[in-house]
Amino acid sequence: MATETHGAEAAGHGEGGGLVFHPMDQFIVKPLFGDGAVGIFTVTNVTLWLALAVLCVIALMVLGTSRRGIVPNRMQSVAELAYGFVYKMVEDVAGKDGVKYFPYIMTLFMFIVFANFLGLLPMAFTTTSHFAVTVVLALAVFIAVTVLGFLKHGAKFLELFWVSSAPLALRPVLALIEVISYFVRPVSHSIRLAGNLMAGHAVIKVFAGFAAIAAVSPISVLAITAMYGLEILVAFIQAYVFTILTCVYLKDALHPHH
């Protein structure tokens, strides 16, 4: 088994000697206080970094705007920028009647963007790189959107799967494809976010492992720098993509007709 060889490898080379890759160790959940097992209510590094995300959101959106200036200072203009960015996205993609759900989408965006960027700090724990986290987010969106669709349109919501513009013979096939793609949505929605974050962080860690070899360490450091730049981009783009896809799904629920 790979795990056994992995363990044996680590034991054989020892820490710091030779090439030892533990790219996944940064994702380990562990209790902040003591060494006990991780229960549901245990305060862990997950708790710490989620709490930091909340604090950052409060710092930017509440403390940053506390001056209520007509002419904004730096923090306030960033907060207004985030507000306008998400508001415009919801309005453009989901339509005027989607603006009602703007606070929920803003919550998702602010959380993901701060969790992603906090994860880029050295020694940080990236909460959004865990499927447990992103699946909850994606399932919340999926269930909310589906329930909303049925509440708004009743059985007519199923017209989403019935492509009325296609030839009649093709429609059942298309309906099957549409249903499958509908149920794949939360899967791709969650794996995209967690996968991107995990991939970037793991790759940086692998490059960091190469830095132990003196000959390639300059290249390795350069590669880490480049990857870090890319990861900053990815951290924002994935938050943006998650949010805009949520808006697209919301639009489907509000206007199911093709």
Binding site: T42, V46, L50, V54, F111
Partner: peptide
């Protein structure tokens, strides 16, 4: 670890 993460995530959200 899933339960722990889900619990704290929901609290955060």
């Amino acid at each position: 670890w899933v339960g722990n993460q889900v619990f704290w995530l929901i609290l955060t959200l």
